[in-house]
Simulated scan of single mutants.
Amino acid sequence: MSSDHPTRRRALRMIGATVAVGGIGLGSSVAQNGQDGEDGSSGEGDDGVDSPYTAVYRDTIDSVVLVTVTGPRGSGGLGSGFVIDEQHVVTNNHVVETASDDGVEIQYSNEEWRTASIVGTDLYSDLAVLRVENMPDVASGLPVVDREPTIGQEVLALGNPLGLDASVSQGIISGVDRVLPSPSGFSIPAAIQTDASVNPGNSGGPLVGLEGDVYGIVSSGVGQTLAFAISPRLANRVIPALIEDGTYEHPYMGVAVQPVGPEIADAIGLEEATGVLVTEVVPNSPADGVLQSATVDSPDSGDVIVAIDGQQIQNQAQLLSTLALETAPGDTVELTVVRSGDEQSVEVTLESRPESQLPQTPIEPGP
Rank of each mutant, 00 (worst) to 15 (best):
T121S: 13
P283N: 03
D4T: 12
A31R: 12
S63Y: 02
I172F: 09
S219K: 12
E364P: 00
V198K: 00
N93S: 06
N93I: 02
S352W: 05
L142G: 04
R147H: 10
G246Y: 14
D177F: 07
E326S: 15
S63D: 03
V333F: 02
L210R: 03
V138T: 11
S219L: 10
P143W: 00
Y57F: 15
N315A: 06
N110Q: 07
I243S: 02
A227F: 08
S182I: 08
T91L: 08
D331F: 06
Q35S: 13
L270M: 14
M1G: 11
R339L: 04
A166C: 05
S109Y: 10
L66W: 05
G81V: 09
Q344W: 00
R13T: 14
V30P: 04
T98I: 12
R237S: 10
D165A: 11
A235K: 02
R131D: 10
D4R: 12
V346E: 13
A328R: 15
A324C: 07
L156V: 10
D297N: 15
E347G: 06
G71E: 06
D213N: 09
P161W: 04
S100M: 15
I264T: 13
M253K: 03
Q87A: 09
T225R: 07
S301V: 01
P251C: 13
S220K: 06
V238M: 10
F82I: 03
V346M: 10
A190Y: 04
D165C: 01
D62H: 10
A157M: 01
V176S: 00
I268Q: 10
I243G: 01
S301P: 00
T18S: 13
S219Y: 03
V278A: 08
L207H: 06
N236D: 06
V304R: 05
G261T: 09
S125F: 11
E326T: 13
E271Y: 00
D245P: 05
I239N: 07
